[in-house]
Design a protein around this nucleic acid. Structure first.
Lengths: 229, 229
DNA sequence: ATTATGTTTCGATTAACATCGAAGTATGAA
DNA sequence: TTCATACTTCGATGTTAATCGAAACATAAT
């Protein structure tokens, strides 16, 4: 009928509540099995299998078999970014889920966005890195500066390994709660991994929430402080 | 079930082919009547009315009555940006409509994105304005510089009027065909209006394509040249 | 007033699809 | 081998929602 890409297909994939729940769960960045995703969506394994087949055919998720398990994860960063932007619009239009319990503030504070840190702390992290000249905005791609290279290396991150992948090192991703950007890309992933490894932060089981320990909180504030202007 | 915003609702709204076609038509930026949108989607007026009611309830479109006509348009820039990003993902995943005729290259060259210029020429325009220091990227918002103010005023754009609205003056919007940003916001709209008024460009009826006249093409190139680096 | 056009509401039909039970395949454990 | 777990396929069912005809409503033109 009309020219251009077909958004209805992707829209309908996201439009089913069960599939939307699964995609939301996968936004945690963890690869989940079909049964875990079924429980997440509140449906049986048979139905989940059908849904996951459609999501895979549509290019939104990818599957990897390990033994008798099939692990599903989001297909790539682009899918994660689109889901995050959809959440932004949904929040803006007041389409929130019923359950707005005590977990909600924690979710706005720090959460996982597919594979990197989002929420207020994610935004603060990128702000700080921009302000101190660790990254600069060039076109749409974020560029890591020499100072930024030193900073990351000082944290113990192997940048050469990151650069050797085909994945962009730095990307910005729009945050639905803060409506500001945070750091995505290979470096964003590596930094979150770093927080886990050092014990600064941990995942709250079964949610997208990232909890920081007492020392983690202060260490984070020290490394990613912001000069008020 | 889960916390956070509900993307399924918006997804299902976009997921119906008839509604997706209507939204695509509204991406042209023009306010269209219910019957025009019905024709666009290939359905009867009754069905279209039902769809438009749902889109309005979901906050994706807005209605304004004028006489016996009801004009529909996208609710705001946020909706347009999300639709554009969805088109980007759809194009990336190869979910293109059947019809990939001679219009397609024209669409990639210059098209309307809701209310501003997109496509290669839209990207070039923003690139040029950045390169010459007319706009600078600050956080996520684009900022118009003093030089940029002079430039726009020189074109005959009344910036004071634009600033008096609640709408952001400059915003960046991700282009699905170029996968680069172009200029959105009040200034983006005003510039496109300017191209129309001066006769540099015109709309190709019934599509999102923007056609530039011979002189328009050269004038555009002169005003928005890029220094190759 | 009368007629024409644009839009919405109502009701009925139809098609699509999410769902699950049951059975089949595959892998790992005992 | 035998049993258990993870997943998929098949078939049947039920619900949702897109669709349109007919009619009501609203505004404009004559």
């Amino acid at each position: 009928m009309k020219e251009g890409p077909d958004i209805a297909l992707i829209g309908s994939l996201i439009g089913d509540p069960a599939r939307a729940n699964m995609l939301g769960a996968l936004m945690s960045g963890k690869a989940l099995t079909a049964t875990e995703l079924a429980a997440e969506a509140g449906i049986t394994a048979q139905t989940a299998s059908s849904h996951l087949g459609k999501l895979e055919a549509g290019g939104l998720v990818q599957k990897s078999k390990q033994g008798r398990h099939r692990y599903f994860s989001l297909a790539d960063d682009d899918v994660g970014a689109v889901l995050e932007s959809l959440m932004g619009l949904a929040a803006l239009k007041g389409h929130t889920r019923v359950r707005t319990g005590p977990k909600d503030p924690a979710l706005r504070r720090a959460r996982v966005c597919y594979n990197h840190l989002a929420g207020e702390m994610g935004v603060q992290m990128l702000d700080s890195m921009k302000q101190r000249g660790f990254v600069v905005e060039d076109e749409d791609q974020l560029e890591l500066t020499v100072k930024g290279h030193q900073f990351a290396t000082g944290l113990g991150i192997n940048l050469d390994a990151l650069r050797s992948t085909r994945r962009p090192l730095c990307k910005s991703c729009l945050d639905w709660s803060a409506r500001r950007s945070h750091l995505a890309g290979a470096l964003g992933t590596a930094l979150l991994e770093h927080f886990y490894k050092t014990g600064w932060a941990d995942r709250l089981e079964g949610t997208r929430i990232v909890t920081f320990s007492k020392t983690g909180e202060t260490e984070f504030a020290r490394h990613f402080k912001i000069a008020e202007g």
